[in-house]
Write a protein that binds this DNA or RNA. Sequence first.
DNA 1: AACACAAATTGATCCTGATCAATTCGCCAC
DNA 2: GTGGCGAATTGATCAGGATCAATTTGTGTT
Lengths: 245, 245
Amino acid sequence: MSTATSPQIIELGAMRRICSGCSLRELCLPAGLDSEAISALDEFVQKKQDLHVQELAYRAGDIASNIYAVRLGSFKSYRLRENGDVQIVGIHLPGELFGLDALASEQRQIYTEALEKSNVCALPVADLERLSRQIPAIGRQMMRLMARELNSSYEEHELLANDTALTRVAKFIWRYVQRRKQVGLQTRQFDIAISRQDLANYLGLQVETVSRAFRELRDRKVITASRSKLEILDHAALQALIRSE
Amino acid sequence: MSTATSPQIIELGAMRRICSGCSLRELCLPAGLDSEAISALDEFVQKKQDLHVQELAYRAGDIASNIYAVRLGSFKSYRLRENGDVQIVGIHLPGELFGLDALASEQRQIYTEALEKSNVCALPVADLERLSRQIPAIGRQMMRLMARELNSSYEEHELLANDTALTRVAKFIWRYVQRRKQVGLQTRQFDIAISRQDLANYLGLQVETVSRAFRELRDRKVITASRSKLEILDHAALQALIRSE
DNA sequence: AACACAAATTGATCCTGATCAATTCGCCAC
DNA sequence: GTGGCGAATTGATCAGGATCAATTTGTGTT
């Protein structure tokens, strides 16, 4: 039961204080930077932060003082609709950045909340701006990361505009697995801290529909799933489901 | 009949070659920059470009060499789905930038096509990068513009995940009007170059459903609409429709 | 002015996913 | 281990929008 989480714990132990020693450096802000640039980053990336379940990294209306890199755990970003309902607009996994949307000292438009016990690097925006003036590569990397965000927002648009419930869920799982693979996490069986309710909300569906999609995938022997435990039985079948749309 | 377009023609005449004299400078890249920074921009923003209906500013796979500012006309950005279908992910109006998603010399992921006879400023990315090294304010402005893009992608997520067909159409029209207001264009009656088909595609609906939503809005005396001519009869009612979701 | 063609509208029916309503399951506290 | 509670599942019904099928309407052309 606890085997699914143990690789993460080992990884946490291996992490160093700073980018140079961080196992996520290839995927995070330092990706593609030379060692000089990374050393410069190291001086600023000292602020690490633990967050417990449901703790907010920031709330809408806050002045954006940091961007964040997920070291461990996961997060959801959400807006509050006119009627007070939550709309989840993003999920953040280890090695990914969040809070980029409020760059250049604007006010936060969204809330970002830990889905489980998590740990982040907080990167002060002011430092980053100063730094990218000294080292252009860092500014360029920031741009690249924001561009990546934009591109994945297009993928989301596509999913929400056209895909059936089953396809949405299958795509979500597939992409989730790909993102885990990126950072060297287990891709066969693992925990997803995201509740069915949150997943439904994010995918523009109802909980019941998501539940039925899971059952369908279980019936087709593509996955096994019980609460937060997920096991991919047939990666190929999952991919096939997505391609056929 | 042609009265709806004549304000635009007058505006075109008033435009200068460069940012300093451009009527859109308050909303475009130069927004918030001091006159020194704008002068620096002026040296690079010389490349203007006319595009005819259906002409592509760029296609997926291209190396991104420019970002674009719409001076006149409108554009749609789209992805090609696995099955070859188009998925429109963005609409660009005068005073807005597009092509930001491929910053930092990545390959284009999307196509951007003129919806009508249009005119853009093409800003070479290489120049911009050099420029923002000299003048930090320009780099910061770029960041701010990308952040704005991200935030509007969250609004789109919300719309696609939760809103009914009528609300989607009402929101689209409302936001479209707000964007026109921004740049000082008519907000009571005007042309929308976007076809019902494209609008449906963008909003994740079928053409017939969009058509029925227009009829509903017409029945409620909120708008009049015939093909591309649109008139807002009751701004307040339109806004009320959106708020009630 | 009449024609031709594409775009938009309208109508009828179908189907996917929403909604309403119980259970059942997993997990934590004691 | 047992109890309790929220999360998830399952079932039955409903409805909003998709789909299929004609028309109608605009618009540009000769």
